[in-house]
Design a protein around this nucleic acid. Structure first.
Length: 354
DNA sequence: AATATATGCAAAG
DNA sequence: TTTGCCTATATTT
């Protein structure tokens, strides 16, 4: 699931669970031991997402000897942080294809149990952390060797690169393609290489429009390029092009600016909906329904959106073309095609997308 | 036990 | 354009 909406969800979750609190960082797996030691004991000041990168900004290491709290635990957005970005130590995390965060806690804040790669067993629910009785736990993570009050901290499962432990919750990271401590300059250098992110309010759509039209590279490849538009992955790429009725192989120079603006506006809606719901869904109600035509999807490909909550569109009904090769197009009935495009699988309808 | 698969990306050829 | 890497899970041998 690590397209942009996933990462924004993660940043929001870290904000809700950990901002303003001194945290314990460790690397149960060992591969991030040095980085974890650098950040251990510091307070999380800010969590930010841009495209598929998440940055956690940590304040200075507390100088006092005992476990006094560095920040507030008011929990909501009001804390006007006085620490400038430039003074923060940043943890940069990129989930890549396999990365995932798993959460547990005392239930004082409801968050998804896991956010990241499609790790759940087929049919398993992504249940939220169970609500528990109000905890009287301390307002910051405990010193080494102690455990938080009021809830049990689970042992790390699998190859946990980094564990973030607060007073009320714990987060374990497995399988990231990037997990490193960077300076503010290094963080800004990463951001400078990213295109506008449709989920962010500060994004400039015209940067996207101009950039695509500057190159003859196929629009289907450009939509996956993070320096063109940040946060779009294989699903949003395929679905946005379908909804725009645009052939993925169209050279960028040939796509009208109006079409690109429409794609941008569509991505804004689709991806922000993904942030809100935790799932990608792009079909309009009149186009849903299981394969009325050429059979159902291969169940082995149903790896996400498997929750059967009432009112939730099933995984099988969520997409127009993604993973639907060989099936009939939901709109026109033509057979959905698939091919490899620069190492990624591209799905499209040859009749609807011209 | 071995293999196939995945919503990603960077480095090498 | 191809290879390598990060990891857990489902399926096949």
């Amino acid at each position: 699931m690590p397209e942009g909406h996933t990462v924004h969800r993660l940043a929001r979750t870290f904000d809700a669970l950990f901002v303003g609190e001194g945290l314990r960082l460790s690397s149960p797996q060992g591969r991030f031991a040095a980085g974890a030691a650098m950040l251990d004991g510091r307070a999380l000041v800010r969590a930010e997402a841009w495209g598929k990168h998440m940055f956690l900004g940590f304040g200075p290491r507390p100088t006092t000897g005992t476990g006094t709290t560095t920040g507030t635990t008011t929990g909501t957005t009001t804390s006007t942080t006085t620490t400038p970005d430039a003074d923060l130590a940043w943890l940069r995390v990129h989930l890549g294809l396999y990365g995932s965060w798993t959460f547990a806690g005392d239930g004082s804040t409801r968050v998804a149990h896991a956010i990241g790669a499609p790790r759940r067993r087929v049919g398993e629910q992504e249940h939220a952390l169970p609500a528990a009785s109000p905890s009287t736990a301390a307002s910051s993570a405990p010193p080494a060797g102690e455990t938080p009050d009021g809830w049990d901290v689970p042992a790390p499962r699998g190859q946990v690169r980094v564990r973030v432990l607060g007073a009320h919750a714990v987060a374990d990271l497995t399988g990231p393609s990037a997990c490193e401590v960077v300076t503010d300059d290094e963080r800004r250098a990463v951001l400078a290489r990213l295109g506008p992110d449709p989920i962010r309010d500060d994004a400039d759509p015209e940067r996207f429009v101009a950039r695509v039209r500057r190159s003859r590279t196929a629009v289907g490849l450009q939509l996956m390029a993070q320096d063109v538009v940040a946060g779009v992955g294989n699903i949003y790429r395929a679905e946005a092009l379908f909804r725009a009725g645009l052939d993925p192989s169209t050279p960028g120079t040939d796509v009208p600016a109006e079409t690109l603006r429409a794609i941008w506006d569509d991505l804004v809606v689709l991806m922000r909906d993904g942030v809100a719901t935790g799932r990608i869904g792009t079909t309009r109600p009149e186009h849903r329904g299981l394969g009325h035509e050429k059979g159902r999807m291969d169940p082995r490909r149903v790896r996400q959106n498997t929750d059967d909550d009432p009112g939730v569109v099933s995984r099988e009904e969520s997409f127009y073309v993604y993973h639907r090769d060989g099936l009939a197009c939901r709109v026109c009935g033509a057979t959905v095609l698939v091919r490899d495009a620069a190492g990624r699988t591209l799905f499209w309808c040859p009749a609807c997308q011209v």
